[in-house]
Design a protein around this nucleic acid. Structure first.
Lengths: 239, 239
DNA sequence: GCTTAAACATGACAAATATCATGTTTTGTT
DNA sequence: AACAAAACATGATATTTGTCATGTTTAAGC
């Protein structure tokens, strides 16, 4: 399968100053000069589907800026199950929290797709944080947003049924990762991954997906899943 | 019941520069001068048990620094139940997230005890954020910590049983709010509040507390609850 | 292309949890 | 002190969800 990594433009495009991805994240608040310095220290890396970018408990000496592909951020719980806390896509900066708090990573990041990420050693990040308030505030805004999202997830986890959470997961995937022209989700997660997002047993998740298909809420075509009746799903969530 | 508010030293003690509470939060990264300015704009307010400091959906024009007492931060879910996302105590700054993200508050803050809070209009906060990187980074560190905690809560919610979560709630209360000389928790929450922390039905919570008493994990004396066998609870959580 | 492992699927059952009903105790108010 | 309203408690039952078992389909490696 050649051309698999065609998303990567190497050589001349590899300077952060030119990178469009930057528009989506806090790096856009850096000055030209800061960005140039960062760019000199960064390295680009391809991560294949299933590979880890970093693991829970690992000490991170830098952050990872996602150029393409999607990563699942998960945490292993005492009972041996993974809980996916967030799905990160183009533009997101992984490991930022750990670097800022100067703690070991509390999450693992594993590629759900083939990915292209840039590794940025923490020195440049930390220096800029300490000298450029615009950048610090921008990072802060992103983190504030993440925190709100996390709070929302807490509420959903505790107050909604598994069925409702599965429905939400599909709407989330549609809204955040889009769908193709035939209405199938661009991101296709395994049933197991979905159950790890939702926080349920894989079998329960499979059953619910089957039910949703029967009821006409979802449609499938081979491996792909699509939303066939969005109102139906929304209805289900709100009751 | 006089002396109810004896925790409040009014007049001379009301300058932020002197406030011990500041040591616990990001305000300690402010310069003397910044702090003096903030202090001039702030107002102190007593909040009685059960009263709201702010409500979900409200626009916050400042933050609230907790001097004493405890507040529950909760969010109403579609099914009409409140989910308590966090309990905030002395030193915590409430509303910071909303002010930084320039969004309406996504949580309500209600006093669980009688409280004393200082209201700080956002201008001083925002100005300092934009000019003093030390302060911005300090706030960032706190937010990073909150985010980690929120992620942990997500994992607990989805992967642990109600019984385990109740056990954790009691250990949390002991570790964060302490106990009196007889080993009873300083913070006494109603069964309903506990169930809103844990994310379960009040009856389930009551039943589990009764069971824990029978098994000797918890002890009660009137309204007070204490941990009688910490190892027992820890054991329960880890299996 | 064949083989093997992983992913998907479904039934039967057990366990956890919510809900409803009802009663008791505690607390706060007049 | 009397009363009403919360808070606490417990039983009976329904519902949701997890677990185990087993089978089928799909995808990946040789």
């Amino acid at each position: 399968m050649s051309g698999k990594y065609k998303g990567m433009e190497n050589g001349k495009e590899s300077r952060c100053e030119q990178c469009i991805v930057r528009q989506f994240n806090s790096l856009r608040a850096m000055s030209k000069d800061e960005l140039r310095k960062i760019s000199e220290t960064k390295t680009t890396r391809l991560v294949k589907k299933g590979e880890a970018i970093f693991e829970e408990g690992e000490k991170l000496n830098g952050v990872f800026c996602v150029r393409s592909g999607i990563s699942k951020l998960s945490k292993l719980s005492a009972n041996g199950k993974d809980q996916i806390v967030k799905l990160a896509t183009k533009g997101e900066v992984l490991g930022q929290r750990s670097v800022i708090a100067e703690e070991l990573s509390n999450l693992s990041a594993v590629a759900v797709n083939d990915m292209e990420v840039c590794y940025i050693p923490k020195d440049g990040i930390v220096n800029t944080l300490n000298t450029n308030p615009n950048y610090a505030v921008e990072v802060l805004r992103h983190m504030a947003h993440d925190l709100k999202e996390a709070d929302d997830v807490i509420v959903n986890m505790s107050q909604k049924t598994v069925k409702q959470r599965v429905a939400e997961a599909f709407l989330y995937m549609k809204n955040n990762f889009g769908e193709d022209k035939d209405g199938f989700l661009s991101l296709s997660l395994s049933r197991e991954d979905i159950s790890n997002v939702v926080g349920t047993a894989t079998e329960s998740c499979i059953r619910i997906i089957s039910e949703f298909k029967k009821k006409g809420y979802l449609k499938t075509s081979g491996k792909k899943i699509g939303i066939a009746n969005e109102e139906g799903l929304i209805d289900l969530i709100e009751r």
